[in-house]
Design a protein around this nucleic acid. Sequence first.
DNA 1: TTGTAAGCGTTATCAC
DNA 2: GTGATAACGCTTACAA
Lengths: 343, 343
Amino acid sequence: MEGKKVTLRDLAVKAGLSVNTVSRALKDKEDIAESTRKLIKDLAKEMGYVGNALAGSLRSGLTKTIAVIVSDVANPHFGIMVKDIEKSARKHNYTIFVIGTEDDHEMEERAIYTAIGKNVDGIIICPSQRSADTIRLLKKNGVPFVLIGRRFEEEPEFDYVICDDEKGGYLATKHLLDSGHERVLYLNGPSRISSARERLDGYKRAYREAGLPIREDLIIDVEPAAGDARRIVKQLLERKADFTGIFAFNDVIAWEAAYVLQKYGHRVPEDYAIIGFDNIQSRLFLPFQLSSISNSKGKMSKRAVDILLYKINHPDSTETYRDVIDTALILRDSTGRSASEQG
Amino acid sequence: MEGKKVTLRDLAVKAGLSVNTVSRALKDKEDIAESTRKLIKDLAKEMGYVGNALAGSLRSGLTKTIAVIVSDVANPHFGIMVKDIEKSARKHNYTIFVIGTEDDHEMEERAIYTAIGKNVDGIIICPSQRSADTIRLLKKNGVPFVLIGRRFEEEPEFDYVICDDEKGGYLATKHLLDSGHERVLYLNGPSRISSARERLDGYKRAYREAGLPIREDLIIDVEPAAGDARRIVKQLLERKADFTGIFAFNDVIAWEAAYVLQKYGHRVPEDYAIIGFDNIQSRLFLPFQLSSISNSKGKMSKRAVDILLYKINHPDSTETYRDVIDTALILRDSTGRSASEQG
DNA sequence: TTGTAAGCGTTATCAC
DNA sequence: GTGATAACGCTTACAA
């Protein structure tokens, strides 16, 4: 019952044939007698043969494996993305490594070395952007990769799939402004991150278009991982900062902000209107109806896989991919939409 | 710049030494001249050498890789677990494959074959429990594995780490009963799943202890993946089913139930008290304060990794592991706790 | 201290 | 149709 792994050689010995013949039979090569093929296939099933992909990979140089490197799979945004990537990859017979970085530089570097060492065929990474060096490592080692969710403006050779962050930031802010909230707190991500910068651009554009002054003291950087958002919102409330609308870099931060508002006895949307980013509600039906910016994670993930596989299969292609997926405003209760059917 | 991967041979040629010497130097073996070692290490760095773990694995039979097989990484419960497993594994220099099954039998089987084919050193799996055959496959192939979250009572040889589901079900139900909710709707998971059955046992025990009759019509199975919960709760509300408390198999189902209640204009906890399971709120600060049963996902994940690594490193050990992690009641607003500080 | 040879399990090539 | 041989990149045992 409890067996060591069955190899081609085991089958060959048992069948009185050569390893080679066994291999070819299992792979349905043309030049094998029908009878032999059947014999071997039955035997393989009987003995519970499972091919050793490792050995094949060593020869072919391909592992049918890709690495997905993100800060934190426990964040629903990344959880959803990883799920979608895995699903797309699986359709093409690829398996994924998942490696977390906590958006830390050193961990990211190690993650990349791990991936290269395991001979992945390619990498999908949401870079911490603490430095472009880690990504240059990939270029240097000739490992195909695609950035997802973030990009390096100064590195035109790094392919990416992002969403239209500027537009998202614009739509969110404009909606709050249009609803009469002239003082919008923006709980932004760290400014090293391209999406944080671009969403901020959108925020500012909305303000400019509305002819309202931008209040720099209402633009605050939050470290996403740390639960930093709660601390910051608490402080703001205690010092009675002057705002009525909140735009958050992502839904997790928006939830935390709403959580603190609740703790302090404030109502959403009556006292404060809140809008997030990522539209996680489309996948997770939470009883708190958070307005958000939809960024089509499913589409982004699929696209990233498609591009990566193309690069893997066309190593000499010099095309570069800079895909920007559209974003859209999704209104729910947290910004006081009247009873509608969205969500 | 853009290079093919550098191999030991490349280094050897460049250094005018044998592949073997290079290998030993990089591994800090004793019998290498200090000068040679330095020469080679510098060269390796310069040329950007990253070892090919594949080749070594083929020899050693170990890949330093484990597979994590779960139904759905986008479910925060599994997202958190995968994160914790990855973290623990990484500490021991293991990398994880993540494969989703949607709790589907065939996909689970394929996932297992994939894992075996990729020569993982071990597997952590939350089984769909549509059949024990898939898991027997693992036993048959001699691949170390640990079940997480679910167990097969009829298969005493399958090691597992679960939480005390019966106690959790008991605590949740008892709390609702104690709070005056005599008719508790139980939105349970599919009964093929051990944790669903055991939580139900706890539910029943609480009822028995309270001396109240168990209403079988208030015990309903929900398919977790499908968003089934929303449909079911809607139906119940429309036919004005008779209950005031809801105990849900997990937090995702609880959220969906609360979501529907909200849509129908009901208040939580005034009209309905709700309690979930998994205590995701401990990781994600949502503005909806859901009472829940804590099951120490961090502890479970770590324990699963520890057991698995032990089994990998002691293949001849015959110990079996049946770990049951304690569960605890965590009260929040959704069951009407008075203002306290939990959260 | 360093080099040579063999082998991990598979597959591609080329004989037979 | 089938079998022998080499090769993928590395490590272990042993020889020099």
